[in-house]
């Protein structure tokens, strides 16, 4: 009995030890980022002795970043893009997914196959022709281009459909018998039930749009259209040795995604469990 208890204790200890190491690996870069963001440039690489919190934290870094580059403009563009893309993505893909999951219609399989086939197609394979096409639509250097690019992904439709499949058909049937229209069923029954899936899709889309680099790099050229990622990269190139400032900018770029993630994370594992896996 005693040895059993000891064994349990030992295994618990090892478990926590592993967790502690993993946590350290995960979080140390972020702590370094935070710590450097309030340091002077020459303090950043001071290793012997290394201090996490400098004696005189340099909060000015957080002020300077707004004045040295049009950071506010970048934030504005990124927030705008992210919200519109995420909104459109959720709206249109949950809409389409409902049809694929719960309705019968001709060519359903064929259309769905078109979606599935492109999930495996890396965007990079067709980014060049896509760029040429967008250009001819006059969408070059327009925020709208990024919206068109990101808002109608096959992935979203697929993810939502998987979730809807797990909702019993009998629910819809019952509502149909009660005379509810398909739009009503979608809005009043399916949507409220699909919170975890919507949360998952929101996180994915939000993170992908917020952090996208190559898309904006190709489409957004003028200074006042740049997103945070492009701006931050440009800033790093320009002020390469002002480590403190770079880290302050980096910290700022993380805050919104982390907020969104923390707000939605409780639905998250549940969402993935009911959507991604059984595909």
């Amino acid at each position: 009995m005693v040895s059993n208890k000891a064994l349990k204790f030992l295994s618990k200890t090892i478990l926590y030890l592993i967790l502690a190491i993993m946590t350290a690996i995960m979080i140390l870069p972020f702590l370094w980022m935070l710590s450097s963001s309030v340091k002077l440039d020459r303090e950043v690489f001071n290793m012997n002795p290394f201090v996490w919190i400098p004696e005189n934290p340099r909060w000015k870094n957080y002020v300077d970043i707004w004045t040295k580059v049009p950071f506010f403009k970048y934030v504005q563009n990124t927030v705008f893009l992210t919200i519109v893309v995420t909104g459109l993505q959720i709206l249109t893909s949950s809409f389409a997914a409902y049809a694929f999951a719960k309705l019968d219609f001709s060519h359903k399989n064929r259309i769905f196959f078109a979606y599935i086939a492109t999930i495996a197609m890396p965007w990079q394979v067709y980014m060049v022709p896509q760029f040429l096409m967008m250009r001819s639509f006059g969408l070059n250097d327009k925020l709208l281009a990024i919206i068109c690019l990101q808002a109608f992904s096959a992935f979203g439709v697929f993810l939502m459909r998987q979730f809807y499949l797990s909702i019993p058909d009998s629910l819809c049937e019952a509502a149909r018998i009660d005379g509810m229209s398909e739009y009503g069923i979608y809005a009043k029954i399916m949507l409220p039930l699909s919170k975890p899936a919507i949360a998952t899709l929101t996180i994915f889309t939000f993170v992908a749009t917020w952090n996208d680099y190559l898309g904006p790099l190709i489409y957004l050229k003028s200074q006042d259209k740049k997103t945070i990622q492009l701006g931050l990269k440009m800033f790093i190139n320009q002020y390469s040795s002002e480590y403190g400032l770079i880290m302050a900018g980096s910290v700022m770029s993380l805050i919104p995604v982390i907020i969104v993630f923390l707000a939605l994370q409780k639905y998250f594992v549940e969402g993935i469990a009911s959507t991604g896996i059984k595909g």
Binding site: T92, S93, F95, A96, I111, T118, V128, P129, Q130, E182
Partner: peptide
């Protein structure tokens, strides 16, 4: 009815993904 559900997404998807893929 079903197409009306699919249309908003499918139109965007077809124009901005399927066409460029063919072109590629």
């Amino acid at each position: 009815v079903a197409y009306s559900f699919i249309a908003p997404n499918f139109i965007g998807f077809a124009v901005f993904t399927l066409v460029p893929i063919t072109f590629a």
